[in-house]
Design a protein around this nucleic acid. Structure first.
Lengths: 178, 178
DNA sequence: TTACTCATGTAACAAGTTACATGATTTA
DNA sequence: TAAATCATGTAACTTGTTACATGAGTAA
């Protein structure tokens, strides 16, 4: 069975489930989506698509329209590989690289005044991000909508955590002042 | 100001906040922690520490004990860089690369029977993971404890989401059968 | 003395990033 | 016709991974 990287899985699903017909459209999806964490750089996408084509997971047929750019699609093997990737339980349940979690234990070590400022700033950024995600959510296809909804859920969970930390930190602050 | 990668920030915080005295101990922390998502490979850690030392963020003094291995510590510049990294709001609030979110929109596209099986399996894996994290949580220092607590929170949020999806999928299943 | 842990490192490889180059087609 | 968009790609670089090599100290 072919094992796909996260980027390769994302590319296959963009083609298969979200109708990206060309490498360029895959790139555009990455560039514009707040939930897809790749830069959409041509230096990543084109080599990956070439790789997938060489392995027989993607086929490319010339386009008949004026616009050049080959129409991409998944072969039967490609669909199998994609399904295997989608249903990989261990990968799916992995925590991933989370910059928030990585720092969460460290904010506690900051002096109370700095900590309060940091957490307050964080809360603002998170709430702005939630608002942006909610605005972006309108008029998306199911696949991306689902991902954005989860992103919102995640940011709200973080915001709740920060609020709890903030009231704790304010408690610490009082203890020091008195 | 020096800008640190996520790995470099994690290395500096292991040395400064969690008392990792040698590169080896930093590696061990990565190898054993379920919340630090690096392999702890020597091929990543040693070059990174050399980089940080060259930039004057880490100092290394020879150890006087029998055990060889230099004692690592942060210079004043190192502490500054670490604090800058910890307080980087944009980085902290970023969603990161989340394999669960990436797939969340795709499970919906699976045939109902497969979807039910997938989600049920996912729930089991998540609950096992939560149990493991809770067991691991005992007897940790504050920094790592905090990160593990957030991991548990995250996995519980996912489990809740999966349960909601499961009941929705079971509804779809009934509609098809009847 | 055998095996384990401490300790450091390199080499080959994989896969992403930015920056640059190129050229066709479409729209203002 | 100028600017924007569609479209594809390469080159230099960064940084991570696995696998391997080496050697010292410690415990069975």
């Amino acid at each position: 069975m072919v094992v796909l990287t996260e980027l390769e899985g994302a590319i296959l699903s963009e083609i298969h489930h979200r109708g990206a017909g060309t490498a360029f459209k895959v790139r555009k999806a990455f560039l514009s989506s707040p939930s897809l964490e790749w830069s959409g750089s041509s230096g990543a996408v084109y080599p990956a698509i070439r790789r997938l084509t060489t392995e027989g997971l993607i086929y490319a047929e010339a386009q008949n329209s004026a616009r050049k750019g080959s129409n991409l699609g998944l072969t039967a093997r490609g669909v199998d590989a994609l399904n295997g990737w989608i249903c990989d339980l261990d990968r799916a349940s992995g925590l991933g690289l989370d910059p928030f979690r990585l720092r969460s234990g460290l904010w506690d070590e900051l002096p109370v005044a700095v900590r309060l400022k940091q957490l307050a700033g964080l809360l603002i950024v998170l709430k702005t991000d939630i608002a942006n995600l909610e605005a972006y959510g309108a008029g998306l296809d199911r696949v991306e909508k689902r991902r954005v909804d989860l992103s919102i859920l995640q940011q709200k969970a973080r915001a709740g955590w920060v609020e709890a930390e903030l009231s704790r930190a304010r408690g610490d602050d009082l203890k020091i002042e008195t």
